[in-house]
């Protein structure tokens, strides 16, 4: 308790000194230089964060570009989607494709995804240059739009174009494989007597 009150007193002193310095036109630095004593207590130093740069999480071996994934949570839970690539943040870039099942270009955590053994060869597909900032911007922009025009916010043109070009490349690929289109359009769900620990996805 004693130290606390001392701290308070010191703070008050400093504040008073600051005020005086301001009124006399002296800057803060000058008063500091004039000090003839050292502070009794250690000054709280700003801590440099010891955290290292976040490394992207390792991709599961079962997930490779072109793998069909099942989304497990969120708005599109149960939907089957195509994995495109891993982003710098470690999140997975996926799309439905939008033209087939309505899942747009999206980021998902691999922990919320089941990888199936179904794979499509998407080497020929040109994946739009999408990074994490792309998605953040998209979120902010519509908000400011909402304030100005009352209608529903629109997605930026670049997003729509990327989606369109992707869909136009992916849909023919999907159609080449028998039953794949209807597979992607259908949702995954568990029904009576189905136990995921016995399944091979």
């Amino acid at each position: 308790m004693v130290s606390k009150s001392r701290d308070v007193r010191r703070k008050l002193k400093e504040q008073a000194a600051k005020k005086q310095a301001q009124s006399t036109g002296m800057s803060d630095k000058v008063t500091k230089a004039k000090r003839k004593w050292y502070p009794a207590d250690d000054k709280p130093r700003k801590r440099t964060s010891r955290r290292k740069v976040q490394k992207p999480s390792k991709l599961r071996a079962s997930i490779t570009p072109g793998t069909v994934l099942i989304l497990l949570s969120g708005r599109f839970r149960g939907k089957r989607v195509i994995f495109l690539k891993q982003l710098a943040s470690g999140l997975l870039l996926i799309t439905g494709p939008f033209a087939l099942n309505g899942v747009p270009l999206r980021r998902v955590n691999q922990r919320y995804v089941i990888a199936t053994t179904t794979k499509i060869d998407i080497q020929s597909v040109e994946i739009p240059s999408v990074d994490d900032s792309w998605f953040k911007k998209n979120k902010k922009k519509p908000k400011s739009d909402e304030m100005t025009d009352t209608g529903k916010s629109k997605l930026p043109e670049s997003f729509l174009n990327a989606q369109k070009s992707l869909d136009s490349q992916l849909v023919p690929l999907v159609k080449q494989v028998p039953f794949l289109k209807s597979y992607l359009c259908s949702r995954f769900s568990l029904s009576y007597g189905q136990f995921p620990h016995e399944m091979r996805f």
Binding site: R187, S189, L190, S191
Partner: peptide, 11 residues
């Protein structure tokens, strides 16, 4: 607008 998904959990 769309039908919500079926069961995605175990009982």
């Amino acid at each position: 607008s769309q039908k919500s998904s079926g069961r995605l959990y175990c009982k």
